[in-house]
Design a protein around this nucleic acid. Structure first.
Lengths: 158, 158
DNA sequence: CGATTAGTTGACTAATTTATTCGGGAATTA
DNA sequence: TAATTCCCGAATAAATTAGTCAACTAATCG
């Protein structure tokens, strides 16, 4: 699980679709305008999102993109994984230069850490983000274990 | 909280220090050899780790690096934050082009998500990783809430 | 049908980040 | 003094991210 701005763009764009594609599909041009993301970059991202079955596309006038599944069945992990194709992270591809007996210390390490981060991000659905977006009060994302956290912490996190 | 290979390298290197600098400091050359990371890259990373007070350096023969604090007082979040300096992630720097009334949707979104990921990574200490490293059985990182997870999940996570 | 709207694709470029290489320092130990 | 090791900066290569462009296909509307 990698976490870069690319994945963030994708989640932001998907949230835009979730918010605005209720009746009619939304065009990439509209997303680009609202979220200030370059149209061509969105084209690349939505190409992947479509091929991964997260959105459906409608061509022609009045066309655009819609969610392929209900927002509560779509997680942040799904989105990030769709656009941010993974790296090996264990730098031994599972086999090669695992050397000096205690081979590939990092393998187990990152496999475990990856799994945890993945489980965490899989616990946040697009519906959660939509819910957070609607009300004006400063509520915060709900995690899979239903604990919350004051968004004030965010300041010194970045 | 960004999550890239750079941060992984840093965590791996710090884990190496935690494992091998029990009595004497470890040299970057030794880490480079064991973990297959370029020496000069390690120098850059450890420059940041040192300036952020995570390691102490000892010059001259027999010198090297040691942990500045006990492993149980050093978290993965500390390490990643030290080397992976943050980006704005809200693409409005907190002020500027937040436009069209519902300004900067992404701000709240990523602030919240960031906070959660940060809290999670702050819950994993270097001591946890060391503990995981020692035994031969396939145990897994312990999270801050002390739940565990089979590392089998890691496969379809990447 | 013809025009327009939008998705689809691929190639290409620029900017940024990641990783490495090199060359010299300065501190410490023996 | 000589060897070791951290320290620093510049230069470079490789990879990723972000954006641009152009040609094309499909669908709709008049």
């Amino acid at each position: 699980m990698r976490l870069t701005t690319k994945g963030r763009f994708a989640v932001t764009a998907m949230l835009d679709v979730a918010l605005y594609a209720a009746d009619a599909p939304v065009t990439l041009a509209a997303i680009a305008e609202r979220q200030r993301i370059s149209l061509s970059y969105l084209e690349q991202l939505f190409g992947k999102l479509r091929r991964n079955g997260l959105v459906d596309s409608v061509r022609g006038p009045g066309g655009g993109y819609q969610l392929a599944r209900a927002p509560q069945d779509m997680t942040v992990a799904d989105i990030i994984r769709a656009v941010d194709e993974p790296i090996d992270a264990t730098q031994c591809g599972g086999r090669e230069n695992c050397h000096d007996d205690r081979r590939c210390m990092t393998h187990e390490l990152w496999a475990g850490l990856n799994a945890h981060i993945f489980v965490f991000l899989r616990g946040v659905t697009l519906a959660d983000l939509v819910r957070q977006q609607r009300p004006k009060d400063h509520e915060v994302v709900v995690m899979q274990d239903h604990r919350t956290l004051p968004s004030a912490v965010a300041a010194d996190v970045l």
